[in-house]
Design a binder for these strands. Structure first.
Lengths: 232, 232
DNA sequence: CGAGCAATTGAACCCGCTCAAACAACGTGG
DNA sequence: CCACGTTGTTTGAGCGGGTTCAATTGCTCG
């Protein structure tokens, strides 16, 4: 049932069952094969999107064609919605990276919900605030750390074990190329390849065409946190 | 009158005069000399701040002590508020860079206002969304552009003429050191100095201890947009 | 099994960093 | 009002991390 799935979406956290039913009733659901472009950078933003299954890559490209991967959207996450509140144009492309299921609502509907259920507004601020925080964290990394550390951070974030949770292994279970990794941390695919290969040789990570596994999370954490000082 | 000044604050845009009066009545106002630390990175976030006059530098430092300037807060801008909705700890330091006047409200009061005047919630989403957008823009720059271009972008942003507005000159009228510039765009103060000096020699900008003036905005824009391709 | 995409590896180069030192602009107090 | 300390700026020389370009190898899937 759709409402049950929507209940797990952070954007709609704390809503009463009746409200969830209403939200669900107004949704448009789409199944999308891998490689589908959901929206393109620069086009008019018209809908609020939530991913129910699969994985979507959000990537921004500048005038020279160089790309930056803003983030990967996972199950239950909202995307493409901030544009509705700013300049009404998507700042990036969204493309499915595996077969996916998406739900969306028109802007008018979202505003109606926001008005009727103020909790959604708070959720929205919390979500966008958390993203702003993460973006600023990345800015700090990009400005001060070296490539190796940035890649380590990127992997930890993707595997959801960047928190202090003492996870001993993390998995990224969707295709992630060296180029993807490079475009997430401002490096070239060559450098990313060299770093990853070195880690594989050391037994810290394993990767194939289906995803990446972090075997030695503590080791990767150590690299991520490694101060500029060289180590023994 | 305080309410009149608060009426110009984006966070409270669209509020009725009575509401503005109430908001003003609950505010705490502080005059702060230059160099005052308003809050420190890592400490508990308790208030929503708005700057009425002056200038505040928001800077984040990592474990190695390297700093990233997140932004400069100007008149009428909100700051230190997102933390209330995320992990309740300031992610950066805030320090006045000129003599300033700040108003603030407790978190409880802000939530009360949010509940009573839903417009504030929408404003908040719009403001935070715009900042997220800017942060992502900077991420793209940091990841793909070279120092010269990043400095150009930083100056244009600070002088509020990064938009397509055909401004012919821009001014930053607060002390801005080469180190500040460097810390905004992930460079060293030495590189920033060399670039700025070169621009001064070319007559594109002028700077002293009181601020920076962009004399040839189009020229700086050209540098900012310069594709990787070398020019004649 | 072969076509095509992704990954690996090598060699050379260069942008921006690091370190070091001199220099200019202030504000302050004698 | 000048001497001085402080703070910010400029400039040089040398190095190195990461890029660029080019070529090869290795998966996968049709």
């Amino acid at each position: 049932m759709l409402a049950a799935q929507i209940a797990e979406v952070e954007l709609f956290a704390g809503l009463a069952p009746a409200a969830l039913d209403e939200v669900a009733a107004r949704a448009r659901v789409q199944s999308l094969p891998r490689g589908t472009l959901l929206f393109a950078q620069g086009t008019a933003a018209e809908r609020c999107h939530v991913l129910l299954a699969g994985c979507v890559r959000i990537a921004q490209s500048d005038e020279d064609g160089r790309q930056l991967i803003v983030r990967f959207v996972g199950r239950g996450e909202m995307f493409g919605t901030v544009a509705l509140f700013t300049d009404r144009h998507y700042p990036a492309d969204a493309m499915t990276v595996t077969d996916s299921v998406e739900v969306s609502w028109t802007e008018a509907r979202l505003l109606e919900f926001l008005h009727r259920y103020p909790q959604i507004g708070l959720n929205l601020v919390r979500i966008v605030g958390a993203r702003l925080r993460e973006a600023q964290e990345r800015l700090g990394e990009l400005a001060t750390q070296r490539v190796e550390q940035r890649i380590a951070h990127a992997l930890l974030r993707l595997a959801n074990c960047s928190g202090s949770a003492a996870a001993t292994a993390g998995t990224i279970d969707y295709p992630l190329t060296r180029e993807d990794i490079a475009q997430m941390c401002g490096a070239t695919l060559y450098t990313a390849s060299r770093v990853l290969k070195a880690w594989e040789r050391a037994g810290y990570v394993a990767s194939n065409r289906k995803g990446v596994r972090i075997i030695e999370v503590p080791e990767i954490r150590r690299i991520a946190a490694a101060s500029a000082a060289r180590e023994a």
